[in-house]
């Protein structure tokens, strides 16, 4: 049986469970990104209630998904020009650019906090977050498994994981979207691909400002999120404080770990046999495949939805800085389809 968290109200039948609300406000990237990792052990051992954290980073940084490769994901030239902090998170998903024009919500909770568990929790959580966004004037809806969108365009990415005995769900809202920086920081095998990536980001990524002409005031966001979770029947969040144990864990364990090269720069994963493929997710099912078939194969770029090729390009001989459109049905198109037949789809 799990211990009763301090401050938890007595069981009142159908009453919502009470969570702790930690509003970290505007804070350094390391704290905004990773303080939840220091909270997780305390939530897991029951010394604090399940917790909703809110934060805004005070400076730009890059976040890698737990399994992402530093070397494969990030453009060295960008990092030389803009040496932003690179923080690997313990949750899933891809490489993201974060800056002060974004707001984060992070849920840290024990097994018994929800009926579903794991990724199934994402759907309930995202439903509540979408409700909060609508209350603030944005026509938001959930695109499973992890996005919040306006129409087809994403303004919120989300991911989850299990860490130190607790579950974590993290997400954020794009109040403004710096797509140029998002496109610049991702490693691409040819500069000709960057305009294509930027075009796709323009098609599939949006922000509060673009959709509504403004951004909600920070002081209105926290109450809307809290109400969203409550009205979705998940929990009631009451303001609380960090504990000494959490602060010490963040200072002595989490912050030093995330700054080590061993944690940040995990080596690239081994490659399966066959064509070399760089997969760049733009948003949800939309992304790019860059396929290099080696000395005997061709080299292509494809705009992809799920695992369906929408557009295909090849490099003209002698002009590596350009791309040529390949018409559907041509032999090159079929070659590309064959080379990518077993690639996993973007979800």
């Amino acid at each position: 049986m799990s211990p009763v968290p301090p401050g938890a109200p007595p069981d009142r039948g159908g009453a919502l469970p009470t969570w702790r609300l930690l509003d970290l406000g505007r804070c350094p990237p390391e704290r905004a990104q990773s303080f939840a990792e220091a909270v997780a052990p305390s939530v897991a051992d029951g010394s604090v209630p399940n917790t909703l954290l809110l934060a805004r980073p005070s400076a730009p940084y890059i976040s890698l998904g737990y399994h992402q490769s530093y070397a494969e994901e990030l453009e060295p030239g960008f990092l030389a020009r803009r040496p932003l902090p690179v923080l690997r998170r313990v949750e899933g998903g891809g490489t993201t650019y974060l800056d002060p024009d974004q707001i984060f919500y992070q849920l840290v909770y024990r097994d018994e906090a929800t009926a579903a568990g794991g990724a199934a929790d994402l759907a309930r959580v995202l439903g509540a977050v979408a409700r909060a966004a609508r209350q603030l004037g944005l026509e938001a809806s959930v695109r499973p498994p992890c996005d919040l969108v306006v129409g087809d365009r994403k303004f919120s990415g989300n991911a989850g994981g299990d860490w130190e005995g607790a579950h974590l769900i993290v997400g954020g809202w794009l109040l403004r979207a710096d797509r140029e920086t998002m496109a610049d920081l991702l490693r691409l095998p040819d500069p000709a691909l960057r305009p294509l990536l930027l075009r796709e980001m323009g098609r599939w990524i949006t922000s509060w400002e673009e959709e509504t002409g403004g951004c909600p005031a920070p002081e209105h966001i926290a109450p809307a999120l809290v109400e969203g979770f409550e009205r979705a029947g998940l929990f009631r969040a009451l303001p609380g404080e960090t504990t000494e144990a959490e602060e010490a864990r963040f200072r002595d364990e989490v912050a030093p770990r995330i700054e080590t090269p061993e944690w940040r720069e995990l080596p690239p994963l081994p490659k399966p046999p066959g064509p070399s493929v760089r997969r760049v997710r733009v948003a949800g099912p939309h992304g790019l495949w860059i396929v290099d078939g080696g000395s005997d194969g061709g080299r292509w770029a494809a705009v992809v939805e799920g695992n369906r090729i929408q557009e295909a390009f090849r490099w003209p001989e002698g002009d590596p800085g350009a791309l040529l459109l390949v018409e559907p049905g041509r032999a090159e198109w079929e070659e590309l389809r064959a080379a990518t037949a077993r690639l996993p789809a973007f979800e």
Partner: peptide
């Protein structure tokens, strides 16, 4: 990791790992 969820899992029981299926890292 699947569906953007990362499960960090323990072994089924305390013990020492003697081999891993390395090809799965790439595929």
């Amino acid at each position: 990791e699947s569906g953007k969820w990362v499960g960090h899992l323990p072994l089924p029981a305390p013990g020492t790992v003697v081999a891993t299926n390395e090809p799965l890292r790439g595929d």
